Amino acid sequence: MTNLENNEQPESVKIEDTEVNQCSSCGGNTVFDPSSGALKCPFCGSEKEIEKTQENAIEHSFLQALEKDDHSWDDEKRVFSCKNCGAETVLDKDKVADFCTFCGSSHIASSENHAGIKPALVLPFQVPKEEAIEKFKVWINKRYFAPSSLKKSYQLSKITGAYLPYWTFDSKTRSNFVVRIGTYYYVTVTRTVVEDGKSRRVTEQVRKIRWRTEHGNYNEFFDDVLVKASRNVASDLIHKIEPFQLNALVDYKSQFLSGFLAERYSIPLKEGWNGAKAIIDRRITNGIERQVHGDVVQVVSVSTNYKDITYKHILLPIWISSFHFNHKVYRFLVNGQTGKVSGNAPISALKVTIVSLVAIVIIAILVIFFGGQ
């Protein structure tokens, strides 16, 4: 039977919210409610609105950040490290975590590492836990190549809402490039063709390419190039639940994290910029190919100057969990804003074989039918 009883927050995670998040009606600890976008008391149902502002979308100097060791989040948070997978979770100073969001291990200890750069913006959860679970059920029922018994015997583990860290980068760029440009031209060629023992002369047009080399400049401003700052969630799973609608980002406030976890970035700022630069370089190459006119364009070399590099640290929401089937663990993610699901699921070799055989038979029938005409 499918086990959904483990979806509640485990007792091993002790959360003692600060007074600012206490319910004004009963004194209970309030948590962020994705459905209403407000702080909600789980005991009496009272809600307290969180003012959403977009005034803190300030770009910070990348070069200045490299010169100083920014620990601006340390006043609010402390770090817990998983000894099993290495993931680091950021929690309020008065909270204690005893399990890892990313691998489920109970080998969690308070870390001496700094919380680091404080987020500027956050994308609050919009998908409640119950909806995330329903989205997962729909997803798993569509795993057509999974074993038939999967839908009845899988066991769903704890599902946890977590904010993943991202960097965004802006940069002005000026590039000098060298390209080879090919222009098509045609020549008339006459050749001898032998058919059924008889030869005949055939004249045809053959396409050739005339090449020339050109130098030029390409300028572009890149805005909010998004780079994942987590090593603990597989990129292929993350890419499948993207995109996030970043126009819904609001100023970071600790209330949005109440009842949820946040991962400390494991990809530092400088390494994040290297990832952004790789994205920018690919876009520059594509831009040069569009800018230069020719039938064929080959980019030989590009030299780029990056100027006024700025960054922001932002948090994006996901539901993360796993399910067990035949003594194996399969992870899945749910986009906390859109509800899009990605994950790994077992594959039935028998189903794959049957589908392959059916496809081969259909192709053979089509070949016989059309080949005989």
Rank of each mutant, 00 (worst) to 15 (best):
L164M: 10
G86W: 01
E16Q: 15
Q373V: 08
I318S: 00
V202M: 07
C85G: 03
R207M: 01
T338F: 10
R264F: 02
S235C: 08
H71Q: 00
S106L: 00
Y306M: 09
E112H: 11
Y184M: 04
R200I: 10
F370N: 12
S171C: 14
I117D: 13
T188A: 04
T190I: 04
I209M: 06
T101Q: 06
K240D: 11
K68Y: 08
H327S: 15
C41F: 03
K93S: 03
Y154K: 00
V20L: 10
N56R: 02
G294W: 04
I50Y: 00
V367L: 12
W139D: 02
T18G: 02
A115H: 00
L66M: 05
V178F: 05
V179C: 07
A109N: 07
Q126Y: 06
K137G: 03
S348A: 05
P268H: 13
Y252G: 00
S258F: 08
Q291M: 03
K52Y: 06
G27T: 07
T173E: 08
R78K: 15
K68E: 13
P165I: 02
V233P: 13
Y265K: 02
E134R: 14
N247A: 07
V292N: 03
E16I: 14
K129M: 06
T101W: 03
V31D: 01
V225W: 10
I241K: 14
D223I: 09
V227C: 05
E16A: 14
S12Q: 07
I117K: 14
Y218E: 08
K135I: 02
K270L: 14
F370W: 15
